[in-house]
């Protein structure tokens, strides 16, 4: 006796399991726009089943080992392969040392079992406005290494997202690494997300903050990135400008102003997870809290 089939959509799909990056790029080149790359599958799998994927060719990247590494680059940057899982990111000692905010963000994605499957590349390339890794990567000024059969290029993450579910990737292109430059001395950062549960939540609002403080507590540079409050994750530049050059104190005006500016910059929508007004209010709260935490971390490190 074999159990009932749950297969609701039996569809004519072709699969490919390339063994190397080179092979993957060749496949992409041959198929042009009619291919979809599957990393961990945690997000794509339900969509493929529901017939929400237009492409007939599915390329599974699980066997491309060169995409699964986290390595230190020549100039101190951290190179994260797109097939690195959230759980590996969380546990990486290199990440802990160089860019712990990424581990912090990875650790609040869904749940441990999903983090064992979901990948950095998937989180970025699905281009969800609520992608948990996007704000901290923007805070770190990360960029995306994109390869196509003719070569590679680097795109800053701030320029990578176009619309919900859409990136600047052209047919035949894929992300081969996420490049995280080293942080300057006096750096502190923080990622916070708001959900209604303590696990298994898609962010209602998420905020990443990174800043550099000099010894007197004056902020010389700041980055504030927001998720789930616009069509794509983005940097709140005005908020950043309000922090730069100011002496930051927990209840101080500069932080309040920066939090308000971040809320101003948000373009949230009403949906089943929250109202636009609530989201906007929460941007201010989370931004303020993240700045305070980031300041504490600068001090904790020095």
């Amino acid at each position: 006796m074999s159990p009932a089939s749950d297969f609701r959509n039996e569809m004519d799909l072709c699969h490919f399991e390339p063994q190397s990056l080179e092979e993957t790029l060749k496949l992409l080149h041959d198929m042009k726009d009619d291919a979809v790359l599957v990393a961990g599958g945690s997000d794509l799998m339900p969509r493929i089943k529901q017939g929400h994927i237009s492409s007939r060719n599915i390329i599974f990247l699980a066997r491309v080992l060169e995409l699964q590494q986290i390595i230190m680059g020549a100039t101190g940057e951290v190179l994260i392969g797109p097939m690195v899982t959230h759980r590996v990111l969380e546990g990486s000692s290199l990440v802990q040392e160089k860019c712990p905010i990424l581990g912090e963000a990875a650790s609040v994605i869904a749940c441990r079992s999903i983090r064992n499957a979901g990948t950095v590349g998937g989180n970025i390339c699905n281009a969800s406005p609520a992608a948990d890794l996007a704000p901290p990567l923007m805070v770190l000024d990360a960029s995306v290494l994109i390869s196509n059969p003719n070569g590679e290029k680097t795109v800053p993450l701030t320029g990578f997202f176009k619309d919900p579910g859409k990136t600047v990737l052209e047919p035949g292109e894929m992300v081969t690494a996420i490049v995280v430059p080293p942080v300057p001395p006096g750096w502190g950062d923080c990622y916070m997300k708001l959900g209604k549960r303590k696990a298994m939540e898609i962010s209602i609002v998420s905020v990443g903050v990174g800043l550099v403080l000099d010894e007197s507590g004056v902020c010389s540079a700041a980055r504030v990135a927001l998720g789930a409050v616009g069509p794509v994750p983005f940097r709140a530049i005005e908020s950043e400008q309000l922090l730069a050059g100011k002496k930051l104190e927990a209840e101080g005006q500069a932080i309040m102003d920066a939090a308000e500016a971040a809320a101003e910059a948000a373009e949230p929508i009403d949906d089943i997870r929250a109202s636009a007004a609530y989201r906007r209010d929460m941007v201010a709260i989370l931004t303020r809290r993240s700045i305070v935490k980031a300041i504490q971390r600068v001090r904790g490190r020095s």
């Binding site: 599957v38 961990g40 599958g41 799998m45 699980a62 441990r112 079992s113 064992n116 499957a117």
Partner: peptide, 21 residues
């Protein structure tokens, strides 16, 4: 939930091809 190469995963969203080997 099953264990795949020592790690717990939600098997309903793991593509069969990702379990190859």
């Amino acid at each position: 939930t099953v264990i795949m190469d020592g790690k717990a995963v939600h098997s309903c969203i793991i593509p069969a091809f990702n379990a190859n080997g």
